[in-house]
Amino acid sequence: MLVLLPPSETKSPDGDGAPLDLAALSTPELTPVRERLVGAVVRLAADPPAARAALGLSPAQDVEVARNAALCTSPTKPAIERYTGVLYDALGIRTLTRAQRARADRRLAVGSALLGLVRAGDAIPAYRLSAGSALPGLPTLRALWRPVLGPVLAASGELVVDLRSGAYQALAPVPGAVTVDVLSERPDGSRTVVSHANKAHKGRVARLLATTTAEPDSAVRLRALLRRAGLHVEHDGGTALTLVLPPA
């Protein structure tokens, strides 16, 4: 089972690993595009106003531009510890046992606008680049990633659970992947998407899938696993699951 997570805009700034080594990252098929994007991001950071415009940043966020300038020299840490925020707080990677962490490292991967896909243990620096960013002089990120990342994901040979946000799914859709939508049910029975709850519950789903000893191989079996964990999950017969949160 491969569980695809969305990245986060916020990232832990620390690390004690050696500088970024693109050749050491998993999925070497992605190396040429990674090299192209890393080079472009570093060059762009030399012009802070242009970098702000391309990345949608304000002058108060120039620390993000500085991180991009140091992409090739700053310390790294495992990708699953680099990303932060609501989803990653709920995942709680640092609270796992050694055996659970080993399973998580095998199963979890993060979609990345800069690096395409990083496995949990891949050593990466802090950076700033979003799926919707447009880098001067380059095609769109979707045009760059889809031809190389799409085939990699399609050929994984295992059940793919795609928890990425829509913008990152668009970079490289995975045919047949199981998706999970999170809806909050109101007292009147109507349902709505709540961003914070969506991220938190996807983080909890990711934790469950990262640590379970089960190996679901279909949407039906995945739904059964989630329901055994006490979640209200609906399945319409396709590859989309809906996690319904009860009224508060």
Rank of each mutant, 00 (worst) to 15 (best):
V3F: 02
L4E: 00
S8N: 11
T10G: 10
K11L: 11
D14P: 03
G17C: 06
A18T: 05
L20M: 11
D21K: 04
D21V: 10
L22P: 04
A24L: 09
T27D: 15
P28I: 15
E29C: 05
E29R: 14
L30K: 00
L30A: 00
T31P: 04
V33L: 04
E35C: 09
L37Q: 04
L37Y: 04
A40D: 11
V42S: 02
V42D: 01
L44T: 03
A45Q: 01
A46R: 11
A46N: 09
D47A: 13
D47P: 04
P49C: 12
A54P: 04
L55W: 11
L57E: 08
S58F: 15
P59I: 00
A60R: 12
A60N: 12
Q61S: 14
V63Q: 14
V65T: 12
A66K: 13
N68Q: 06
A69V: 13
A69L: 13
L71I: 01
P75I: 10
I80Y: 02
T84V: 13
G85P: 05
L87P: 04
A90K: 00
L91S: 00
G92Y: 02
R94I: 15
T95D: 15
T95Y: 05
L96Y: 08
T97N: 03
R101D: 11
A104I: 06
A104V: 07
D105K: 08
R106D: 13
R107W: 09
A109W: 00
G111H: 02
L114E: 07
L115N: 13
R119A: 15
A120P: 03
P125L: 07
Y127S: 12
R128I: 03
S130C: 07
S130F: 05
G132C: 03
S133P: 05
L135C: 06
P136L: 14
P136F: 09
P139D: 15
P139Y: 10
T140K: 11
L141G: 08
R142Y: 04
R142W: 04
L144A: 08
R146Q: 15
R146E: 15
R146L: 10
P147V: 01
V148Y: 02
L149D: 01
L149F: 01
G150I: 05
V152A: 14
L153M: 07
A155L: 08
A155P: 09
L159E: 05
V160L: 05
V161N: 09
V161W: 07
D162P: 03
D162T: 07
A167N: 06
Y168R: 01
L171C: 07
P173C: 11
P173I: 13
A177D: 03
V182E: 12
R186M: 15
R186I: 14
G189F: 10
G189K: 05
S190Q: 15
T192G: 10
S195F: 01
S195M: 01
H196I: 12
K199P: 03
A200C: 06
A200Y: 07
H201R: 14
R207M: 01
L209A: 11
A210V: 14
T211E: 00
T213P: 07
D217Q: 12
S218M: 10
A219P: 08
R221D: 10
L222D: 07
R223L: 11
L226E: 01
G230N: 09
G230H: 05
L231D: 14
E234W: 05
H235C: 01
H235K: 03
G237N: 01
L241R: 08
V244E: 08
L245R: 02
L245K: 01
L245W: 01
P247D: 00
